[in-house]
């Protein structure tokens, strides 16, 4: 893909806790989101997907700390913002205006004591001080109809909505200021498959109309293959493989990606055997030496246990990267 980058993450390190008791949640993450693209981020629980999303938006709550690296946002008109260097005031203005998030767990993302209306409009009040109350209400109605919810639900409280409707409200909220980037952190995990489909379809339509870039975080790699342009696979706080969605599906290079792909039934295409990955994800405080995946890897050989493979293009070609000794 030749599109210009909109968000570049380079060398990002995140720790939980400092000193001897601290654990390293993210190590040396390099990732680029291009304009208009859907970037999928996949991995098991605890691989650092959500931590990455929170670190990029500086929402990490203590004891999470960013210990190194850079996150740059590239304005559409040119000009670059160093997100990690923003003052609290600048950060407030940046958030939601340029980058919004749909959090996992739609059930708890809405404040139970405020109406949908109040939660949709307070972001407008904060970022568009000149807007009048009637305009804000009109915008809120517009947003709700955008995600397929009837506008009379504006006066409803979150507990009066179903899970799917709440997640739609969250998506509507994320689009309130027409941001350039929307990070979706497992937006459909709490929902049943039918509702997942509907929400994803809504998302695809909205993205075509509004052309924002998406970072889509999930552990459901089959979903990503259909929905995203490019996929980054995380393991043990590192990105282990990064390639176009079809390349990952047809020809995964990292043994872990291969394992992940064979853990889910594909939604289309021929049947294949599900194998899964033996063992369980490593604990962050007891990360294996060398490649973090080597204790579970069937193809592990001599360098894997001692030396960390770097993320690099496997062959001379292509727009893909993998961190594995098999491809050196």
């Amino acid at each position: 893909m030749t599109a210009e980058p909109i968000l570049t993450i380079s060398g990002l390190d995140v720790d939980y806790g400092t000193g001897a008791s601290g654990v390293r949640a993210l190590r040396n993450i390099d990732l680029t989101l291009h304009r208009g693209e859907v970037l999928g981020l996949a991995g098991e629980s605890g691989s650092g997907k959500s931590t990455l999303a929170y670190a990029v938006t500086r929402l990490l709550s203590p004891p999470g700390v960013i210990t190194g690296g850079d996150v740059h946002y590239h304005r559409p008109g040119g000009g670059t913002i160093d997100i990690l260097a923003l003052s609290p005031e600048q950060l407030r203005a940046f958030r939601w205006q340029e980058l919004s998030i749909v959090f996992q767990g739609a059930m708890n993302s809405l404040n139970p004591v405020h109406t949908v209306h109040s939660q949709l409009t307070d972001v407008l009040t904060a970022h568009r001080p000149g807007m009048r109350a009637a305009e804000r209400t009109a915008r809120a109605e517009e947003l709700l109809s955008l995600v397929g919810i009837s506008t009379d639900r504006l006066a409803a409280y979150p507990h009066q909505l179903s899970g799917g409707m709440r997640q739609r409200v969250m998506i509507a909220m994320a689009l309130a200021l027409e941001p350039e980037i929307v990070i979706m952190d497992e937006p459909t995990t709490a929902l049943d498959v039918v509702m997942q489909r509907q929400i994803l379809r809504t998302l695809v339509e909205l993205r075509e109309r509004l052309s924002f870039s998406v970072v889509f975080i999930t552990h459901d790699i089959s979903l990503l293959i259909e929905f995203s342009d490019r996929i980054a696979i995380m393991y043990g706080g590192r990105i282990v493989e990064q390639a176009g969605a079809t390349e990952i599906y047809r020809d995964p290079r990292h043994p872990y990606s291969e394992g992940l792909l064979h853990s889910f039934p594909a939604l289309h295409g021929p049947r294949r055997e599900l194998t899964g990955i033996p063992g369980s994800p490593p604990h962050l405080s007891a990360m294996p030496t060398g490649c973090a995946f080597h204790p579970r890897c069937a193809k592990a050989f001599e360098p894997c246990a001692t030396r960390v493979p770097v993320l690099a293009a496997p062959d001379a070609d292509q727009d893909r990267e993998v961190a594995c000794w098999l491809h050196r």
């Binding site: 709550s61 993302s109 139970p112 307070d122 972001v123 909220m173």
Partner: peptide, 30 residues
Amino acid sequence: SSEDYVMVAQAKGLSERRVMFSYAARNAVL
């Protein structure tokens, strides 16, 4: 303060006063 909706309110770029009173304290005072 550790509820998701407080995190959402912060991600929305609302002022700290608004997050503290309207999202955290408003619910905590019940």
